[in-house]
């Protein structure tokens, strides 16, 4: 056996350390970000307590007025940080986005996987992936110029006429800036993510099983419904969770079309709202002029809540996927 040279050993060592650094960095980043967010939130957690997540009034206080001392914390007079409006906004917009995006994604993925072949299939797949690459500020602009007026003048009124008897769907359609428009814009941003993942899942369904379905006289739809969808279910839950996380964290597009409401919970499907991510982006600059620093801590706690909710949905999705049979897992493991 040939002796391993010193240089080769050193190279191997460098390789090991380099891979370890790279592989370790995501963990370190996650821990560092979470650590800093938690650390920065501590003063507000002590100051507001649980009222932070149940209160609806967000007030930085009089930044140009006197500083008062409450529970041992120096804050601007009148300061109170209640984030329920933004938590509700984040959850509602992302859920509306999922309600719109999931059926569209399943059907598009099905078509891409099974129905179109060759050049057309290739072009369509590329187009779906290009959609994912549109910068969110461009989507937001499209939301302001097209979706908001359309919701205000046509779509919102249409929904209201059909479903208006259900409490949350009736009422004033308003300006088009709000919950429904944000949901539509977000849906457009998560459709590509869910679609491309789901298409790959559909392609992993064994041909034999699908052919068997067709062989016993199932229609195309029945094959998908009774063979493909059950087969990919676990992976699909993961795909939806991925899209959901994206929808909750999206900032710019929502900020542009949501109407950025504060101090008021949405009254109906068309009400202006604001999300946690958009609100942090909006308020950070003013927060930095708070001499007591409490405003920045409050925004940190808002970021912490967003982080916890996003991680929680991810964990729930994983938990939903976990207790399935091992055979399917082989097919859909990603």
């Amino acid at each position: 056996m040939r002796r391993v040279s010193g240089a080769s050993k050193a190279a191997d060592r460098i390789f090991q350390v380099a891979t370890a650094i790279c592989a370790g960095s995501p963990v370190v980043f996650l821990v560092a970000i979470a650590g800093i967010v938690v650390y920065q939130s501590i003063p507000t957690i002590q100051f507001m307590g649980l009222h932070f997540v149940s209160g609806t009034q967000w007030n930085l206080g009089s930044l140009y007025g006197a500083v008062t001392k409450v529970h041992g914390h120096e804050v601007p007079a009148g300061a109170s940080y209640g984030a329920l409006v933004f938590i509700a906004g984040t959850m509602l917009t992302s859920i509306i986005a999922l309600i719109i995006a999931v059926p569209i994604s399943i059907l598009t993925a099905m078509i891409l996987a099974y129905q179109v072949r060759g050049a057309l299939g290739f072009v369509l797949s590329i187009l779906v992936e290009l959609l994912a690459g549109i910068p969110s500020v461009v989507v937001g602009l499209w939301g302001i110029l097209v979706v908001a007026p359309w919701v205000s003048h046509h779509f919102g009124i249409f929904i209201k006429d059909i479903l208006g008897f259900i409490p949350f769907f009736g009422g004033n359609v308003g300006s088009g800036y709000g919950l429904l428009t944000s949901g539509i814009v977000l849906a457009m941003m998560i459709v590509p993510i869910i679609t491309s993942t789901t298409r790959d899942l559909f392609l992993q369904v064994p041909l034999l099983a699908r052919e068997g379905g067709l062989g016993i006289g199932m229609t195309t739809w029945e094959t998908v419904r009774y063979i493909s969808i059950p087969y990919i279910r676990d992976g699909f839950v993961g795909a939806v969770a991925l899209g959901w996380g994206r929808a909750m964290g999206e900032t710019m597009a929502v900020l542009m079309v949501s109407g950025n409401a504060m101090n008021i919970l949405p009254q109906n499907l068309y009400s202006p709202i604001s999300t946690m991510a958009a609100f942090i982006a909006n308020q950070l600059d003013s927060a930095q002029t708070d001499a007591t620093g409490m405003a920045v801590h409050a925004l940190s706690e808002l970021a912490l809540v967003l982080l916890v909710i996003t991680l929680a949905t991810n964990l729930i999705a994983r938990w939903l996927v976990r207790p399935r049979g091992a055979r399917r897992k082989v097919g859909v493991s990603r």
């Binding site: 009034q57 300006s175 800036y177 409401a261 504060m262 101090n263 008021i264 009254q267 009400s271 202006p272």
Partner: peptide, 11 residues
């Protein structure tokens, strides 16, 4: 802390 007016929009 803008008053919570139902029609109000932030841009």
């Amino acid at each position: 802390s803008w008053p919570g007016v139902q029609t109000a929009i932030g841009a």
